[in-house]
Design a protein around this nucleic acid. Sequence first.
DNA 1: GAGGATTATGCACACGATTGCACCGTCTGG
DNA 2: CCAGACGGTGCAATCGTGTGCATAATCCTC
Lengths: 351, 351
Amino acid sequence: MAMRKLSLEGPATLRDVARVAGVHPGTVSRALNPQTRGLVNERTARRVLEAAQELGYRPNPIARGLRTNRSNTIGVLVPDLMNPLFAAVVRGIEDGLREAGYTPLIANTDNDAEREQVAYEAMNARQVDGFIAATARRDHWLLADDARTGVKLVLVNRRVDSDALPAVTGDDHEGIRLAVEHLVRLGHRRIAHVAGSQSLYTGWSRHQGFLDAMRSEGLEADPDLIVYSQGFTVREGGRCCGELLERGREFTAVVAGNDLLALGCYDALEQRGLRCPEDVSVVGYNDMPFVDRFRPPLTTVRVPHYELGATAAALMLEQLRGRDLPPRQLLLAPELVVRGSTASRSQHVVP
Amino acid sequence: MAMRKLSLEGPATLRDVARVAGVHPGTVSRALNPQTRGLVNERTARRVLEAAQELGYRPNPIARGLRTNRSNTIGVLVPDLMNPLFAAVVRGIEDGLREAGYTPLIANTDNDAEREQVAYEAMNARQVDGFIAATARRDHWLLADDARTGVKLVLVNRRVDSDALPAVTGDDHEGIRLAVEHLVRLGHRRIAHVAGSQSLYTGWSRHQGFLDAMRSEGLEADPDLIVYSQGFTVREGGRCCGELLERGREFTAVVAGNDLLALGCYDALEQRGLRCPEDVSVVGYNDMPFVDRFRPPLTTVRVPHYELGATAAALMLEQLRGRDLPPRQLLLAPELVVRGSTASRSQHVVP
DNA sequence: GAGGATTATGCACACGATTGCACCGTCTGG
DNA sequence: CCAGACGGTGCAATCGTGTGCATAATCCTC
C-alpha cells in the first residue's frame, strides 16, 4: 500500500507546501530560495510563501546538503576548549558565523596529530564547507593536503610562512616589542626570555619578536638568558625560570611566552626567596582572565582573542562567498597592560 | 546525456564498492552495517569489506541521516563557553560522546530565551538525536515541550523538580554543607550568604543547601545575613557583600554562591579596609582554575565539571540505546578545598 | 497574424544510503 | 519426489531538496 506521506505528522516538507499552494514542489523550491526567486511569478511566490508560513515549513538541511554538497557548517579545530584563550576564539567564531547562517562544528585536538586527523575526516564526511584551524603546531598535514576539494581553510592564532592561506593572528612581534620597550623604560637591560615551545607557532613567533625587539632597543639578546619550554604550562614555566636562575647569569626581568609560563616564573622566584617585582620583573602574554588577581597582578600583553575568532569567521565567509579571492593575512593589534609584576630596576639578582 | 557517476573523482560511494565487489549496492550496505551483517554470506561480506577498504570508502553521514532521520549528533546548549566551568562540561561531553561515534553540536545561549529557541530549532532541523542542556534557568520552555518527537533530553548542572528528566548535577546540598561545617569548626557562628540568582538552578539549590546546613548545625540563618545577587558576577558579589556590610549586622564569614561572587566579596572587604581571612572568612564554589592564585587563595568547593559532562554524555547514550529507560538523576560528590581565605574566628566585624 | 523571444511552471532525475519485498536456489522431511 | 522452509541477494522505492530540460503560455514585432 504505497501512499504518499502527506502531513502525516512530522515537519512539513516541500511537497506539503506545494500541495497547499497548489503548485509543483520544484516551484516551491525556487520560490523559497532567494537565489532563484526571480524565476517564479511574483504572485505565485507570494502564495508559496504564505503556505510555507502557514505550515511552519523549515527546509531540511540534511536533504539540502545531500543535494548541494554543502552543509552551512564550518569545522573548527582547536587544541583545547578548556583553555580560556581558545574558548574566547571559539566564541568569536560562533558569533561571527551565526549572522551568516553558518554553524560551527567544534573538535578538541589536544594538538595530537591523530586526533586532528580523525576529527578532520569526520568533519569532511559531514560535508563541512570549510575549516578554521586554531591548532598551534607549525608543521601541519592540513597545509600539505592538496586534495582539499573546494573546502576552504582559514588559520587563526597561527599562520604559515608561505602566505598561501588566509590567517588572522595577534601581532606577536609588536606585542613582545611593547613588553620589551616597557621593561627598558623601567631601566632594565638584562632581560631574559622564557620561550614557549618552538614547535608551536606562538612560541616561535614570540621568540623571534623577542630577538628583534632586543636588537632594536640596542640590547644584546644573551643566549644564556633564553630558555625554551616544552609546553605552555605553569610547571614548564617554573622549570625554565629555575634553570635560568641556576645558570647564574645576571638578569632583572623576564619576558614569558604566555601567562602560564609567567605564573611558573612566580613560583620559581618565590621558591628561591626572590620577590616579584622588587627583585625580578615578569611580563606575561595573553591577558588571561583573572591574571589581574594574581599576586602580584600580572603585567601582560592583551591579545583580542574574541576578535581573532570573529575575524577568522569573517575571513571564512569571504572565502565562501567570493570566488577565489587572494588569501588575506591579518594581524590584530595587541595592547600592553601594565600591572604589578613589573617595576623599576632597583637591584641586580645575585644568585 | 544521463550518465552514472562512476569513480569520477570524489569519495567512493556505495555503488563504487558494489561494482568492485561485484554485488548490488544494497548488499554492500548490509555487509558494512554490523547490525545487518548477519543477513549476508560471510564470503560475500569479506569481499565487500576488502573492496571498501581498497577504495577507502567512508559512509556519507548526510545521506544516511536523510534516510534514517538520525545524525549521530547531539545538540549541546550551554550558557557561555568562555565560562571555564562550562568549557569543562563541554569537554567532558565531547570526550564522553566520541567513543560512541557521536558528535556534539554546540551553541552558546547566554541564558537568553530567544537565542535558546533559535539554537534549538536549528539543531532540530539538523536532525540531532538528542539534547544536552546546561542552560541554567530554572523555568524552561524545553521542559514543557511535549512535542519532542523522539529526541532525547538530558540536563547537566541543573535539574527539575519533577524527576521526569535524566539529569546529572553536582551535589550542591552536600557542597554547601561541607562549607558551612568547615566554617563552624573554625569557630564561626554568624555566617552570611551571598546567594546566586534565584532564577538559576545553582543559585537556588545552593541557597536551599545553605538554609538546611545552618539548621542542621543548630544555627539560625539570619535573613539579614542573606543577600541575593542578580547574576554570578564579580560586580554583583561586590555589591551584595557591600550591602551586607552596610546592614550593620555582625558576621565573621560569608559563603558565596560561586567563586566570582566570592571574588566580589574580596573587593568589597578590601574597599572597606577589612582583611580576608583575618576579619572575614570567605568560601567560594566551583574551584575555578587559578583561584588558588588569588590573594588570598580561595577556599572553595570543587565541582567535578568535566565528569559532569562525561556523565551527561553517558546518560544520553543510555537513553539513545535503551528503549525508554526510566530517567536517572545523578548527583556527583563535591569536595571542599581549604586554602587561605578561611581562618579561625578571631574578631568580630564592627561596621 | 505568424513566428520568435521571453516567462513561468511542470517533470523527472540525482544526491547516497537504507530497507521491505520478491525471487531464486538449495536443503530437508515426509 | 515434492512441498515448504530458509538463507542470500537483487530490485526498487524512499528520505527532502535542487536543477536541467521540456513545455506551455504570453508577449512583441514586423
